[in-house]
């Protein structure tokens, strides 16, 4: 079983792993700020168009969003279980849990696509393409513009997360990790948790009024 490479700039594995963890958390903080701008915009427009936003949320596809919340929360469990498994060197389980997580990511995207199709047929599109007769207001237009941008950026992160996990799944399949050295895998799962955490905030903002 190959031990991971120790960078020559590090004195020991523990320093290297500490550095990786710190770097990942710094990166996650940066990612949060990426979404923070959108949250701030959402808050400002909701203050401006309160009733319109509430009406738009009531007309939104609640069940699609809720099912997706369930899927993502479950995927956070399975991705955490993959770390549990790698600590016990049960590599087949690691691959299994990561694979299930990726599948759930795919399921999330399928549901999201169905939802987008419904919005498309309704005419609940962003900006100038918006023509939903049930909610012909400026505010609803703002809401759906924000909705598309926020869920779009999040979906991009889901896809990125799936790619990262697929890479680690392949690495785990080829036994690149040990009970002691699997920090990279843990960092990948942290990223997946971030994707989940952002969705936990998007869900109430976009589906529960």
């Amino acid at each position: 079983m190959p031990a991971p490479k120790l960078g020559e700039q590090f004195g020991s594995y523990s320093v290297q792993e500490h550095a990786l963890r710190l770097g990942m958390w710094a990166f996650l903080g940066s990612e949060l700020l990426l979404f923070a701008g959108l949250f701030a915009l959402y808050a400002a427009y909701r203050t401006m168009y309160g009733p319109d936003f509430e009406a738009a949320i009531r007309h939104n596809t609640l069940w699609y969003g809720t099912i997706n919340t369930f899927i993502l929360l479950t995927s956070s469990l399975t991705v955490a279980l993959s770390v549990w498994a790698v600590r016990r060197e049960k590599f087949k389980l690691v691959v299994f849990f990561l694979f299930i997580t990726i599948l759930q990511g795919a399921a999330f995207l399928v549901v999201k696509t169905l939802e987008y199709v419904k919005h498309y047929t309704d005419g609940a599109l962003p900006g100038p393409y918006y023509h939903w007769h049930e909610l012909p207001t400026f505010g609803a237009n703002r809401f759906y513009t924000m909705y598309w941008v926020m869920t779009g950026l999040h979906a991009g992160h889901v896809i990125a997360g799936m790619c990262v996990l697929a890479w680690f799944c392949w690495r785990a399949h080829h036994r690149h990790y040990t009970a002691e050295h699997h920090t990279m895998l843990e960092m990948g799962t942290l990223y997946w948790h971030l994707v989940d955490v952002i969705w936990i905030f998007l869900w109430p903002m976009l589906y529960l009024s």
Binding site: L41, A44, G127, P128, F138, G139, N141, R142, T145, V149
Partner: peptide, 13 residues
């Protein structure tokens, strides 16, 4: 895409 996120003509700020 002319989303008008900051365009007052379509309700942006």
């Amino acid at each position: 895409l002319r989303l008008g996120l900051f365009n007052p003509a379509v309700g942006g700020d």
